Amino acid sequence: NKFNKEMRNAYWEILLLPNLNEQQKRAFIRSLYDDPSQSANLLAEAKKLNDAQA
């Protein structure tokens, strides 16, 4: 399933972002589970926040 693969990839990438705190990571991951079809958008948002907090 395409969404499962995308979601899994986004999950691990979000977990490994160094500048997000645990609460932020949990919020993004919760959103991933709520709507896996938004994986790419959520990952992009997480990366943007990660860069902003660098």
Rank of each mutant, 00 (worst) to 15 (best):
A44Y: 14
S31K: 11
E22K: 09
F28K: 02
E45Q: 13
P36W: 04
Y11R: 14
R26D: 02
K2A: 11
L32R: 00
Y33A: 02
P18S: 08
D35R: 14
L49K: 10
P18Y: 07
N19Q: 07
N9A: 15
K47Y: 12
S31A: 06
F3P: 14
A46P: 00
A10D: 01
D51S: 11
K25H: 03
A27F: 15
K48I: 09
A52H: 11
M7R: 01
A54I: 10
E22H: 12
L42F: 11
W12P: 00
Y33R: 05
D51H: 15
A52E: 08
W12R: 14
A10S: 05
Y33M: 11
E45R: 15
P36G: 06
L17G: 01
L43S: 12
Q24W: 11
E45N: 13
N21L: 08
L42S: 04
L16D: 05
D34G: 12
E13N: 15
R30E: 02
N9D: 08
D51Q: 15
L16V: 06
E6I: 05
A54M: 11
P18T: 05
A44I: 10
A54H: 11
N4D: 14
D35W: 09
A46D: 00
K2S: 14
Y11Q: 05
I29G: 03
Q53T: 10
Y33T: 04
Q53L: 13
K48G: 08
A40T: 05
L32K: 00
N9Q: 15
K25W: 03
E6G: 01
L49A: 14
N9H: 14
D35I: 13
N4W: 15
S37P: 04
F3L: 12
N50Q: 05
W12M: 05
N1I: 05
N1L: 03
N41M: 12
K5Q: 07
A40Y: 14
E13K: 15
L16G: 14
R8L: 12
I14M: 10
A10I: 09
L49F: 08
F3Y: 08
L17E: 01
A27D: 03
W12V: 04
S31M: 08
A40M: 12
N19I: 05
L43R: 14
N9M: 14
K48E: 08
L15Q: 09
Q23I: 08
W12N: 14
K47I: 05
E22N: 10
E45A: 13
